[in-house]
Every structure is written in C-alpha cells, then in structure tokens.
C-alpha cells in the first residue's frame, strides 16, 4: 500500500533497477520480484541462515535487510555464485558426500561455506562446525556438510600446492573442478 521507491543495485553481476515498497525485505525482493528463488526464507528473523546472500562480498541475512538498504550495493545469490563457478568445487563435494537432503538450507550453507573457505587455510572440523552454526539443517545432522566443507578446503590447499598457507581460492576468477 505504501508508495514504491526506486532502487538500483547489482545482483549477480548485473544492474537491476526497480521500484519497491520500502517494507519489502531484500529476500522477498530477490525471490518475488527477481524470481531468484534459490535464496530461501526459513525464519525471517536471522536465525536459520537459509536466506544468506553476499552483500559486497559479505554473507548477510536477506530477511533482515530491506531491499532499499541494498541500493547502490552488490548482491550475490547462490544462482550468481553457481553461474560464475565460484562454488563449483563445494557443490561437487556436497553432491558426492550427500551433504544435503531436502535442499532447503543448502543455498545458505553454500554461502557460509564460500565465505569460510575464501579466508584460505584449512579450518579444523570444530572451526567448520562453528562457522556453520548459524545455518539450521533439519535433515542431515550436519556431519556430511562438515565433511564436504572439510574436503573442499583440503582439495583447494592441494591445488594451491601449499599444505599450510591458505590463499587457495583465487579471488574472482573461475576455477575448474578438482578432478
């Protein structure tokens, strides 16, 4: 009912100009206005992590932010990360390890995993569990997800040829899957 206001932001690398109600959350805007339904809404209060997207490269809850607040900023969703193959190795590890069942939490898990692994290094299982502790999954019991993230971190280290030091993920570049 309230008047719509113009917003302009980058979504998955493309500029989007739209008119939105000020009360529309970023999550609802992505899903309902842009049809990017990979981002899910589970609790709408920033607890479950299903709605995580990247805002200027940092994971945020799209349910806790209004679309107007993203004006002039860069949003990246699971669709965008998939398209530019930034998480292809994580997705492959999730697939092989069956680190998802219903798949509803998965986009949020992938965003968390992307952010964690972008710091480089090989996090311990406890560190992985800690990093994932804002992502609720009812199906898997988490162990397979921890395994998949762990596996990806190790693969990236191996690819980078540095067992201790991180910097495995080349920033921005596309990366082929590990064989």
């Amino acid at each position: 009912m309230s008047g719509r206001v113009p917003v302009s932001m980058s979504v998955d690398g493309r500029t989007v100009d739209a008119l939105v109600e000020p009360r529309t959350s970023l999550g609802d805007f992505l899903r309902n206005d842009l049809g990017l339904t990979g981002t899910h809404l589970g609790c709408e209060m920033g607890v479950c992590g299903a709605c995580l997207v990247l805002l200027d490269g940092q994971a945020i809850h799209s349910c806790l932010m209004y679309a107007v607040q993203a004006n002039g900023r860069a949003v990246e969703t699971v669709e965008g990360l998939t398209e530019r193959r930034a998480i292809a190795d994580i997705q492959k590890a999730f697939h092989e390890r069956n680190a998802l069942q219903c798949g509803f939490c998965t986009p949020g898990m992938l965003v968390t995993a992307y952010e964690l692994l972008s710091h480089g290094g090989a996090p311990s299982r406890a560190e992985i569990r800690d990093a994932l502790s804002g992502n609720y999954c009812r199906c898997t019991g988490y162990e397979a997800i921890v395994d998949a993230v762990d596996q990806t971190a190790k693969e990236r280290q191996k690819q980078a040829g540095c067992p201790q030091d991180g910097r495995a993920a080349a920033p921005g570049g596309t990366k082929d899957n590990a064989a």
Binding site: N32, L36, G38, T39, T77, Q91, F94, H95, G103
Partner: peptide, 21 residues
C-alpha cells in the same frame, strides 16, 4: 550412488511450493 536430483538443489534450482507463482 550420489543423488542425481541433488545437483539441481545445489544450484539453487529447487522448485518448492514456496517458490511457485
């Protein structure tokens, strides 16, 4: 055997009732 249909979910291409318009 890994689940063939899981790849779609991993790419954010699930089609849940919540998503349908």
């Amino acid at each position: 055997v890994s689940r063939p249909n899981a790849k779609r979910l991993l790419a954010g291409r699930g089609r849940y009732v919540t998503d349908l318009q």
